[in-house]
Deep mutational scan, measured.
Amino acid sequence: HSHMSHTQVIELERKFSHQKYLSAPERAHLAKNLKLTETQVKIWFQNRRYKTKRKQLSSEL
């Protein structure tokens, strides 16, 4: 499990705020920019979407 830097997370968050789903080319581009693997980016987005979904569910209770 590799640790992401604060800067990388900020960039991922910024991208996520604009779009929740990335196409393969977008993911490849973002990964390259942030010096991450595409898998890391993919998993981060999956986890981030899951967290957002959970938060929405709990706020509706």
Rank of each mutant, 00 (worst) to 15 (best):
I43Q: 11
K42A: 12
L57Q: 13
S58V: 08
Y50V: 08
L36D: 00
Q19P: 03
R48C: 09
A28D: 06
K15Y: 15
A28W: 05
T7C: 14
L30I: 11
R14Q: 07
A24S: 07
Q8A: 06
L30N: 00
T7F: 15
S17P: 01
H1V: 09
L30Y: 01
S17T: 06
S58R: 11
R49P: 02
L22E: 01
T7D: 12
A24W: 12
H18V: 12
H6S: 09
T39D: 07
I43K: 11
H18E: 11
V9E: 08
I10R: 11
E13Y: 05
F45S: 04
Q56L: 15
Y21W: 10
L30H: 01
K42F: 06
E26L: 03
Q8G: 02
R14W: 05
K20N: 13
Q56W: 12
H29T: 13
H18Y: 12
T37Q: 04
E38P: 14
S23Y: 06
K53R: 11
H18C: 15
Y50K: 15
E60W: 12
Y21C: 06
L22K: 00
K15I: 14
V41P: 00
A28S: 09
A24D: 03
P25T: 14
K42W: 10
R14K: 13
A28K: 10
K55Q: 14
M4C: 14
L61T: 15
L12N: 00
L36H: 01
Y21V: 03
K55W: 06
K15D: 00
H1A: 08
R49F: 03
R48K: 12
R14D: 05
S17V: 07
R48H: 07
Q8K: 03
F16I: 00
K42S: 07
R49L: 04
K55I: 08
Q46T: 05
S59Q: 12
K42R: 13
L57E: 14
L34K: 02
R27E: 04
K35Q: 12
V9G: 01
E60T: 05
M4H: 03
K15S: 07
P25L: 11
E13I: 07
Q8I: 07
H3E: 09
K51S: 08
K51H: 12
S59P: 10
R54E: 13
K51E: 15
Q56I: 08
E11F: 06
R48E: 11
P25A: 13
L22G: 00
F45N: 00
I43H: 06
H18Q: 06
H6W: 10
I10M: 14
H3L: 10
S5K: 04
T52K: 14
E13A: 05
E60V: 07
K53G: 11
L34D: 01
Q19M: 07
L12I: 02
L22R: 00
Q46C: 13
R14S: 12
V41L: 04
K42C: 12
S58M: 09
M4R: 01
R49Y: 04
K35I: 03
Q19D: 05
R54F: 07
S17Y: 07
R48V: 05
K15R: 14
A31V: 01
H1C: 15
R14L: 08
S2G: 10
H1D: 09
L12R: 01
K20L: 03
Y50R: 15
F16Q: 00
V9N: 04
A24T: 05
L61E: 09
E26F: 02
S5M: 05
S17G: 06
K20C: 15
H18L: 12
K32H: 08
V9F: 10
A28E: 08
K35C: 14
W44P: 00
Q56C: 15
A24V: 09
E11H: 06
E38I: 07
V9W: 15
K53L: 08
F45E: 02
K32T: 09
